[in-house]
Design a binder for these strands. Structure first.
Length: 450
RNA sequence: GUGCCUUUAGCUCAAUCGGCAGAGCGCCGGUCUGUGGAUCCGGAGGUCACGGGUUCGAUCCCCGUAAGGCACCCCA
C-alpha cells in the first residue's frame, strides 16, 4: 500500500512543529496571564451533544457509528464541549469559570490555503458571567495575541446579535427571513451596497425593507457616535437598547486594557454563522494573506441552558492557529530555532566515555544536548552534521585534549573555540550560550500606529 | 458540496508540436591526514500523482480517481 494522507489533514514535521509550539506557548501564557485555566475534552462526543447548535454548519460535521453502535461525531469546535462540561460539572466549577482550551477540531470543509479539515483552535471562554467586561476582555486578549506576534493590518470587528435582529425588525423584515438577511449583509464588505441590495431583493425582501436595512447597517463613524444614532432610531425597542448599552460598555472599556483602540471597530454588518450566538459577536480579519477571519467569538447565553435546563450566560473567543500561522509566515514575523539542541557533543572512539559523561552533565544542567551518534566518523563530519542542524555550539572530545583532561567548546557559527578542563565544560557552554542562546528571535514588531 | 486551475528527482523548475526525461539546490561517497559549513571529483535518486482509454508507441491526447490551489458556500 502506498502511503497516503487524507485531504485537508497534515503531518507536522519538526520545523513546522517548532513554530506551532512556539505560538501555542505564546497563546497559553497569554491566557494564563489573564487568569484562565486549562481544560481538555474528548475529540469525540455523542452526536446529540454536537447537533442542533451550529445550524447549517452541521453538514460539515464528521459523524459516524462507533463499534458499540453509538452515534458519535468529531467535535466541530471547542465551545460546544465546554458547554457540555459546564452543564455536567456545574457544582464543581466556581462561577465565573474561566477556561482556555487549545486543541484540534474537525470540519469536512473543502481545503484551501488556511483552511483544513483538521485544525487547531485556541479558545478562551468565561462561563457564568453576563458582564460585558468578559466580552471586552476577550476582544482585548485577541488584540494582544496579534500585537504580540506583530501581525500587521488586522482589525477586530464587533457587533451584537440583538442589534442585528432589531435592525431587521425595524426595517420590516419578516422574522423568518431575518437569517437570510444577516447572511446577505455580512457580505457588505465584499460585494458593496448594491450587491447586498440585489441579493436582499432576490431573496424576497421588498425594496423598502432592503433599503432600510442597508441604511442602518452601513452607518459609519466612531463607535460612540454610531451607537448614539442607533439609540435615537431604535428608541422604544428595549432589547436593542440593552444590546446597544453592552456595545457602549465594550467600546468605552476596551482602551483601558491597553489595546490600540483603532484596531477595534463597530461593524453593524457583521453577522457570524454559528447559531448559538445571542449577544456581542466579534471577528478578527487581515487583508493579507487572504485567509478569511483569523479569530472569532461572541456571547452564547442560551447554549449551556439548552443542555442543563438552567440558563448560564457565557462568552468566548477562538484564535485560529493555522490562519494566524499563515500570516506569520507571509510576513516572516517569527523565527524559531531549526532544532531543539543547543550543544552537540562530538567525539572519537577513544573519547567516547568522556563525551557521554559530559553530555550527561550538560543535560543535568538543563542544557539541551545532542550526543553525537557519528563517533565512528571524523570530527569534521560530525561538526558538519551539527551545523547543518543549526546547533549553535559544539563540544569536541578529540584525543589530545581528552588525554590532557580537557575539551573544546566551539561556536559553530563563528568558529571561536575555547579549550577548557572537563569540569569547566558546563560553565563554558553556559557562558558562550549566554551571548547568543540561539533561541527565539522575534522580528521587530510592525508599527501599529494609525 | 459546486465550478475552474495545477500535479515531472527530496526541493524549485525545464523539456519532449505523441518516439527510451534534464538543470540548480539538497542528499550520499571521496578529496582536503585531528575541526565543519569552501573547492574539486564521483554517485544514488523519477512506474513524468494514480488507474483506465485512444495509438505501432503517451509524461505529452481523452476519461476517472487522489492531493494541492482559486472562486462560491461557509468559516479559524
Amino acid at each position: 500500500m502506498r502511503p497516503h494522507i487524507l485531504k485537508g489533514f497534515r503531518d507536522y514535521l519538526p520545523a513546522e512543529m517548532l513554530l506551532r509550539q512556539r505560538i501555542i506557548g505564546d497563546f497559553r501564557s497569554l491566557f494564563e496571564r489573564h487568569g484562565y485555566e486549562p481544560l481538555d475534552t474528548p475529540a469525540i462526543e455523542y452526536i446529540d451533544t454536537l447537533t442542533g447548535k451550529a445550524g447549517e454548519n452541521e453538514k460539515l460535521m464528521y459523524r459516524f457509528m462507533d463499534a458499540g453502535e453509538r452515534e458519535v461525531g468529531l467535535r466541530y469546535d471547542l465551545t460546544v464541549p465546554l458547554a457540555r462540561v459546564a452543564a455536567m460539572h456545574q457544582n464543581d466549577l466556581p462561577m465565573p469559570f474561566k477556561r482556555y482550551h487549545i486543541a484540534p477540531v474537525w470540519r469536512a470543509e473543502k481545503p484551501q490555503r488556511g483552511r483544513f479539515r483538521e485544525f487547531w483552535q485556541c479558545d478562551a471562554d468565561v462561563v457564568g458571567s453576563a458582564s460585558s467586561l468578559a466580552d471586552t476582555e476577550h476582544i482585548a486578549m485577541a488584540v494582544e495575541a496579534m500585537v504580540g506576534l506583530g501581525l500587521p493590518g488586522f482589525r477586530v470587528r464587533v457587533n451584537h446579535r440583538a442589534v442585528l435582529e432589531g435592525i431587521a425588525r425595524h426595517a420590516g423584515v419578516p422574522a423568518d427571513r431575518a437569517v437570510g438577511v444577516y447572511r446577505s449583509i455580512d457580505k457588505l464588505d465584499k460585494v458593496g451596497r448594491d450587491g447586498v441590495h440585489g441579493s436582499l431583493v432576490e431573496s424576497g425582501i421588498d425594496e423598502g425593507a432592503a433599503g432600510r436595512v442597508l441604511d442602518l447597517t452601513s452607518l459609519d463613524g466612531a463607535p460612540d457616535h454610531v451607537l448614539a444614532t442607533l439609540r435615537g432610531r431604535m428608541a422604544g425597542d428595549e432589547a436593542v437598547l440593552v444590546a446597544l448599552g453592552h456595545l457602549e460598555e465594550i467600546f468605552s472599556a476596551v482602551g483601558a486594557f491597553g489595546v490600540p483602540v483603532a484596531r477595534v471597530t463597530l461593524d453593524l454588518s457583521l453577522a457570524r454563522g454559528l447559531d448559538y450566538y445571542t449577544g456581542a459577536v466579534f471577528e478578527a480579519v487581515v487583508e493579507r494573506p487572504r485567509v478569511g477571519s483569523i479569530a472569532g467569538g461572541g456571547r452564547y447565553d442560551g447554549l449551556i441552558g439548552s443542555m442543563s435546563g438552567q440558563a448560564v450566560p457565557a462568552t468566548g473567543i477562538s484564535l485560529g492557529l493555522e490562519r494566524i500561522i499563515e500570516v506569520v509566515r507571509e510576513f516572516e514575523l517569527v523565527t524559531v530555532p531549526t532544532t531543539t539542541a543547543l550543544t552537540f557533543v562530538a567525539h572519537v572512539p577513544a573519547t567516547r566515555s568522556a563525551a557521554i559523561e559530559a553530555a550527561t552533565a550538560l543535560r543535568a544542567a538543563t542544557i539541551p544536548t545532542d550526543l553525537s551518534l557519528l563517533g565512528h566518523r571524523g570530527i569534521g563530519d560530525q561538526l558538519k552534521y551539527a551545523s547543518r542542524k543549526g546547533i549553535p555550539l559544539g563540544v569536541i572530545f578529540g584525543k589530545d585534549e581528552s588525554d590532557a583532561g580537557e575539551a573544546l567548546v566551539r561556536d559553530l557559527a563563528t568558529s571561536e573555540q575555547r579549550r577548557v578542563p572537563l569540569d569547566g565544560v558546563v560553565d563554558a557552554v553556559r557562558d558562550m550560550l549566554g551571548r547568543d542562546d540561539g533561541r527565539v528571535d522575534v522580528a521587530a514588531v510592525a508599527a501599529f500606529a494609525e
